[in-house]
């Protein structure tokens, strides 16, 4: 994890510090996709009931 940037301003707001943290964004990006698209999608497919073919 990189050190916080050397800033000429004392108070850097939390939002800016979060946005500057690329590894946090990397993890967040992977997790959101893995949970909402891939994980949920797999669960949808794998829990489909068998057809009754009425």
């Amino acid at each position: 994890m990189p050190e916080p940037p050397v800033q000429d301003d004392k108070a850097i707001p939390l939002g800016q510090r979060l946005f500057d943290n690329v590894f946090l964004l990397l993890i967040a990006g992977i997790l959101v996709m893995a949970a909402i698209y891939t994980g949920w999608g797999l669960w949808e497919i794998l829990t489909l009931p068998p057809a009754t073919l009425p």
């Binding site: 800033q7 000429d8 301003d9 108070a11 850097i12 707001p13 939002g15 800016q16």
Partner: peptide, 13 residues
């Protein structure tokens, strides 16, 4: 005032 090629310094929030 700066372009997208420059590093913004200090607080840009």
């Amino acid at each position: 005032t700066h372009t997208g090629l420059d590093s913004p310094r200090g607080n840009w929030w």
